[in-house]
């Protein structure tokens, strides 16, 4: 009897520790799957994130993410796996290599161009009109009145 119980106990331990068992009951939540799926795109319906794609194929791909996460793969490994299988278009942004660098250069180049244009367009006058200098001085009350009269002047001019 004891031998039978021992066999059953060993069998139970075997089941619990078998990787195959872990695969049938993956301890990975929907939220973990969605977190990663939101950073991938459906390989079939272009421009639809994998997280929200309603097709059956995408549901299977989400399950694939669950399986990979359950096997201990990290985010980058899973993304690389999908990119290898289905091409770079499954990644939310182009990988930083080769021709793709062009797109990452545009925002900083735009910034530099903007600053250069601003420097070129705005030219300081050689002398600041005296009236302006005066308006910078004086008590606070005077300053407020200057300010308000300036607003009124602006208003008159706009329309």
């Amino acid at each position: 009897m004891k031998r039978v119980l021992l066999v059953i106990w060993l069998f139970f331990l075997l089941i619990v520790q078998t990787p195959g068992y872990a695969q049938t009951e993956p301890p990975v939540s929907d939220d973990e799957v969605n977190r990663l799926a939101s950073e991938l795109y459906c390989p079939v319906c272009e421009n639809v994130p994998l997280e929200v794609c309603p097709t059956k194929a995408c549901a299977q791909w989400r399950e694939l993410i669950r399986e990979k996460l359950a096997l201990g793969w990290n985010d980058e490994e899973i993304k690389a796996y999908f990119a290898t299988q289905y091409g770079d278009q499954v990644l939310a942004v182009p990988p930083r290599r080769g021709f793709n660098w062009l797109i990452y250069l545009v925002p900083p180049l735009t910034l530099v161009a903007g600053i250069l244009i601003a420097i070129r367009v705005i030219r300081k006058p050689k002398t600041i009109p005296a009236a302006q200098e005066v308006s910078n001085e004086g008590p606070c009350r005077m300053a407020a009145e200057d300010f308000i009269s300036q607003i009124e002047n602006d208003l008159e001019g706009v329309e």
Partner: peptide
């Protein structure tokens, strides 16, 4: 067109 590689430019960019 130029490289034959399809890419996605998504919200993170």
């Amino acid at each position: 067109l130029l490289t034959g590689q399809k890419v996605t430019v998504g919200p993170p960019f």
